[in-house]
Computed example of a mutant assay.
Amino acid sequence: MIHTFAVTKDLKLITDIPLKRLDDSDIKWFWVDFDSPNDEEALLLKTHFDFHPLAIEDCLHFLQRPKLDYYDGYNFFVLHTLNQFSLAPEELDIFVGHNFIVTFHSSPSSEIGMVRKRVIEDKSTINKGVLHIFYSIMDKIVDEYFPSIYKSEDELNEIETNKTNKDLIENVYEIRNQLLKLMRTIFPMRELLYRILNSERVIVPKDERVYFMNIYDHLLRISEMIESNREMTADIRDNYISLNSNRMNTIMKTLTVMTSVFIPLTFIASIYGMNFEYMPELTWQWGYFGVLGVMVSVGSVMLLWFWRKGWFK
């Protein structure tokens, strides 16, 4: 499906007009949105707009890294939106010229839908031109990154308050995996914004530059939140491992003490368990009680020695 928006020189908004009318002399600027286009509609990128074959190839072959390419008369941008369920990146391609903007996305985009609605309902946006539409799209994309970050933070806070959860380590690794997916989307977008702001070939007027700086600040904030959350997951993981190691050491210490006490007792019992005929102690009237006394004494002395060595602290 193709959506068209055109603004005339007398600042009137016209929607859903044929592409041929976009070349009329009374059109000041226009926006064409290729929303989940079929093959015939995608072919218009070449036959009607005559965009560069490499840019068209990037549109048709998913998934490109966020980037900026310069062509005569326009710039080509690859942006990444975020699927809120799978956290997978989804590509959004934008062609920006001095009097036009063309967006191309192979699946429905909620961000584009919100900007389209805003253009129709808020007539003041048509006075701001193509660059403001481009800014609005990027701003919506970045705004949609925040819910996933906040969700990860809430899950981490829940883990912090409920450290006895038996699935704690599995939850921590799941959150780290989510943060890694977010990093793969957001960090390249941050680099792209930096390039836009510092490129001599992308002309951003001073009054519009502050808006793009605001988007860049948001991306920096999101990046810091991701790194902070990853550090927190690493701390929780390390603390969990240390706690388990300490618990295991305590168990091993207890088993070691028990084993150390029973080794000499087992040795004594094994001696008198031998079936030799001539063993003097076997015929002694108090032999049984004597051996038990020796065994109790040996065990008590060893436990006292372990206690003085600090094994029970």
Rank of each mutant, 00 (worst) to 15 (best):
K309H: 08
Y71P: 06
M138S: 12
L13H: 03
G299M: 05
Q64S: 15
F187K: 07
D35H: 12
T266E: 00
L180R: 07
K166M: 11
D24H: 07
F51Y: 07
E40G: 13
V301I: 14
P37D: 09
S199V: 14
L219M: 02
F49C: 07
S297N: 08
K117V: 11
N177R: 12
T185G: 03
I141Q: 00
V298W: 00
L197A: 13
R118L: 04
K128R: 12
D143L: 08
M248Q: 12
R201S: 15
E40C: 10
W305E: 05
L220F: 02
A42Y: 03
Y211L: 09
V296Y: 02
F49D: 08
S124M: 05
I169T: 13
S260K: 00
N162Q: 11
E91G: 10
R230D: 09
S152F: 09
P18M: 04
S136R: 07
V172N: 00
N171C: 08
D50T: 12
W305I: 12
S109C: 15
Q64T: 12
S148G: 04
E158N: 10
I159Y: 03
K309S: 03
K163S: 12
L197C: 12
R308A: 03
L92T: 08
Y145S: 10
H52N: 14
E224S: 07
F187D: 11
Y272I: 15
L54I: 08
G73M: 00
Y145A: 09
S148T: 15
L131R: 07
S107N: 06
K313H: 06
N162A: 03
L243A: 15
M279W: 14
I133R: 00
N157W: 05
D217G: 01
D69A: 08
Y194P: 00
S228C: 02
L168H: 12
G290P: 03
F146Y: 12
D10N: 15
M232N: 09
F267Y: 04
D235G: 07
R221L: 03
M248V: 12
N246I: 15
Y240E: 06
Y71Q: 15
G310D: 02
F146C: 07
P188C: 06
H52M: 05
K123S: 10
A6K: 05
S242L: 11
R308Q: 09
L219I: 08
Y288L: 02
L255W: 04
I137Y: 01
G129V: 11
T185E: 04
V78I: 11
L192I: 04
R116G: 03
I241V: 15
I241R: 11
T256N: 05
R184F: 06
N198W: 06
I215A: 03
Y216I: 08
W31I: 06
D235S: 14
V32G: 01
N177M: 09
E121H: 10
R237W: 11
G299W: 05
Q64I: 13
M232F: 09
S297I: 15
S124D: 13
Y240K: 07
V96M: 10
S136W: 05
G290K: 01
F30P: 06
V7C: 07
M232K: 13
K206S: 14
L220M: 00
D23G: 08
F187N: 15
T161V: 14
R308C: 00
E40N: 13
S86Y: 03
K181M: 10
P188V: 06
D167Y: 09
T259D: 03
A88E: 11
S242A: 09
F5H: 04
I17A: 10
H48P: 01
L303H: 04
P280Q: 10
Y194M: 06
L22F: 04
